[in-house]
Design a protein around this nucleic acid. Structure first.
Length: 743
DNA sequence: GCAAGGTC
């Protein structure tokens, strides 16, 4: 039997369909769908099966799992084992592998694809050591490419796979040991650990650096002088003094002073401006465009994935910005000559020649993202449609003409002072007709010529100040990561999500917590390697050397482990310092403002039972407290409540979108109000006389309350639930419920 | 419980 292995299920299905003389048979093997056919030239049947990317994972043996017992240092030279992550697929691979006489690896045409293929082959060779194997390379699953690839099978590039494997080992060993070191050092064990990694840490450093730049920024005041003119047809023109920023108020005042009531046109310059045709979408460009119309990176990718699996767009994870020749582009446009985009498709098809733009990056992995089929609006939800439309319009735009603007620069003389106005008018929409996103508005000026005189109908002086550089939005950050070589098309958005879920950042644009400052500062000082994108560039270089056969993987790994030993030694030499500054950062993230009762700091605290609340540093003299939700990471944001002067709070739960709780005091007041309203709706129940009559309070609980000097219903009602919870170790929420019942 | 890379 000839076994063909593709990287994913859908690729296996489509390859089988292209290669099979008639419709391939779908056969289930160990719970996996495979595709079978009989090639007339072959003696035997062919089976095509798909993997799900990597089906195995690197890890340390179980003995290393205990963070308290196993030191970070020991991880460096620990054995690295391969464990299956997709058990069903591995089982199917073994079963089919045993039967196979010949295996063809048909995974994606890139380094990870080579490694994924070798991983699968290794599993097969364990059960069938002498099996024959080869490799095919293709850049798009089209009839021409697939047939061409299978007519000319090549051999597996084991060096390239080794290069990929070295990356896996280095990432695991560096990531795990530094994560463990920092987490232990900060006393953050359990799910609040402080993670470190080759990609995530330099990315976090970018965000922290930007925040530092903002903090160091000193804004400078400046003044702007504008005037409003009216021409003979009563058309208004807004003009600005040629000094767009006056740094001295006196100078602006002086200009205001002299501006009279007539303006004369001193010059009119008109010229042309060209907007270049956009290039085909790769993942980064797509996320950037989606981000500019309001999608988060992860949402954009999640939706793209579903559009892809439903056949509406091509594969969304690609670096390529050049359409491969094997795709019949005209036919792809023709698909849209009916339906909601027909107007656009027809206009393109009427062109003599369809020449698409080419981006800077040309790769072998996949084609750029383009629409694969015609969708009906009713088949998609609103968000899916928006992104589908984005992909369709971008695809069209890449065949369109340049957009052309007519620009006008007019200078005016008002009482000897020069003022200016800029106009722009889109004269040739070109590609902008197909792709109307983020289009600059026309700025129309009336027809003016030199010597024209206008009335000055108003003047104004605005005081402004220079603004600090903006924080990174997700789209911008992903572009920057790509420029620096951090992460891949498939992982950049996941890295960003990781930073959110680890509570290193919040908000969009991204804002780092104090903990992030502390983590990055500690690493930059004592383990700088892991905070720089150079580590990735160095790794890329090493991987290229391995791939070219110039160096053995083992040598690169030895070198890397040696470096990591040095890094950990440096950390150990400064352990007290590091521990202290990490803990200080963590503490700072818990400060939520000043206590309204006593002026001490209000902090996020933990009761003995482990539940969180906001408490006052003045305790026990001050009892001020506010409740917090039971689960989720608590992030104190920069926003301050206008009414209560304390910071707003966000709650992060894994897998859920962050919950903006707002001001904890407002939230508590709101909560009490809804409780009261709820209660008002309920039929009146008499308030119990004895504490043991309160539903939910039994003998044991009553005893506990008694120990805390709560004997009567009145005392229960008046108690501070959180304080009482601390003394009795009864849940505060329950106490509050009982209080409701006796109020 | 640790990374980053595939894929869903």
């Amino acid at each position: 039997m000839h076994l063909i292995i593709a990287e994913k299920h859908i690729a296996a299905k489509r390859i089988a369909k292209i290669l099979a003389p008639k419709e391939p048979k779908q056969v289930r093997v160990s719970g996996m769908d495979t595709f079978e056919y009989k090639d007339p030239d072959a003696e035997d049947r062919t089976v095509v099966m798909g993997l799900s990317g990597h089906i195995v994972q690197l890890d340390f043996p179980k003995a290393y799992n205990n963070w308290q017992k196993v030191d970070a240092n020991e991880l460096i030279d620990a054995e690295v084992i391969t464990t299956p992550t997709h058990v069903k697929i591995v089982a199917a691979l073994r079963k089919l592998g045993k039967e196979a006489t010949h295996v063809t690896i048909a995974t994606d045409y890139d380094r990870e694809g080579e490694l994924i293929g070798v991983e699968a082959l290794n599993i097969i060779r364990k059960v069938n050591p002498d099996v024959e194997f080869d490799r095919v390379f293709y850049s798009a699953i089209t009839k021409t490419e697939i047939e061409g690839a299978f007519e000319n099978p090549a051999s597996i590039d084991f060096d390239l796979a080794d290069a990929g494997h070295s990356r896996q080992v280095i990432d695991l060993v560096w990531g795990a040991s530094l994560t463990r070191y920092l987490s232990i050092s900060a006393g953050r064990l359990g799910k609040l650990f402080l993670s470190v990694g080759r990609v995530q840490s330099p990315t976090l450093a970018l965000i922290v650096d930007k925040e530092k730049e903002r903090q160091a920024f000193v804004s400078k005041p400046y003044w702007e002088v504008n005037a409003i003119l009216k021409d003979s047809d009563d058309a208004m023109v807004n003009v600005q003094h040629k000094n767009s920023k006056f740094w001295e108020k006196e100078e602006a005042d002086a200009v205001m002073e002299v501006v009279g009531d007539k303006a004369s046109v001193s010059s009119v310059e008109s010229s042309k401006k060209i907007d270049k045709v956009p290039t085909p979408f790769n993942t980064t460009e797509f996320i950037g465009a989606a981000s500019s119309i309001g999608f988060t990176a992860s949402n954009a990718m999640r939706i793209a994935e579903s559009l892809y699996t439903n056949g509406f767009i091509s594969y969304p994870r690609t670096d390529n910005t050049v359409y491969p020749e094997s795709i019949d582009l005209r036919a792809q446009i023709e698909i849209f000559s009916k339906g909601p985009f027909r107007e656009y498709a027809q206009k393109l098809l009427a062109k003599d020649k369809l020449v698409p733009t080419r981006g800077k990056k040309q790769t072998t992995d996949h084609p750029p993202i383009y629409p694969a089929s015609l969708a009906k609006k009713s088949e998609l939800n609103e968000q899916e449609w928006k992104l589908y439309e984005l992909v369709v319009r971008r695809f069209f735009a890449t065949f369109a003409d340049e957009a052309e603007w007519e620009t006008m620069k007019v200078r005016f003389d008002i009482s000897g002072e020069e003022f200016k106005a800029n106009g722009a008018r889109l004269v040739q929409p070109g590609w902008r007709w197909y792709y109307p996103y983020n289009a600059p508005q026309d700025r129309l000026l009336p027809a003016l010529s030199e010597g024209d005189v206008l009335d000055v109908t108003g003047k104004e002086m605005l005081d402004k100040e220079t603004q600090p550089p903006g924080r990174y939005g997700q789209g911008r950050l992903i572009k920057l990561m790509e420029d620096l070589g951090l992460g891949t098309k498939a992982t950049r958005h996941e890295i960003i999500s990781k930073l959110y879920s680890r509570a290193y950042v919040h908000g969009n644009p991204l804002q780092p917590t104090k903990t992030s400052f502390a983590v990055i500062e500690a690493l930059e000082k004592y383990a700088p390697t892991i905070t720089k994108h150079d580590m990735t560039s160095q790794l890329e270089e090493d991987m290229n050397r391995i791939a070219e056969g110039n160096v053995k993987e083992e040598n690169v790994l030895n070198e890397s482990r040696k470096m990591l030993h040095e890094v950990l030694a440096e950390l150990a030499n400064n352990s007290e310092n590091i521990s202290e500054s990490l803990r200080a950062g963590l503490r700072e993230d818990k400060v939520i403002g000043e206590c309204p009762d006593c002026g001490s700091k209000l902090m996020v605290r933990r009761s003995k039972r482990g539940s969180r609340f906001i408490g006052c540093n003045g305790y026990p003299d001050c009892n001020f407290s506010l409740p917090l939700p039971k689960s989720g990471q608590i992030i104190v944001t920069e926003k301050v409540c206008e009414e209560h002067g304390i910071n707003h709070v966000k709650i992060i739960n894994p897998g859920k979108r962050p919950w903006d709780l707002g001001c904890p005091q407002c939230n508590f007041i709101e909560w009490k109000k809804t409780q009261e309203e709820e209660k008002a709706k309920q039929p009146k129940v008499p308030i119990p006389d004895k504490i043991t009559d309160v539903p939910g309070i039994g003998k044991v609980t009553a005893e506990k309350l008694k120990n805390a000097e709560i004997d009567t219903v009145d005392e229960l009602r008046q108690a501070n639930a959180i304080e009482l919870s601390k003394i009795t170790s009864l849940p505060a929420g329950k106490i509050m419920k009982w209080q409701e019942l006796v109020t």
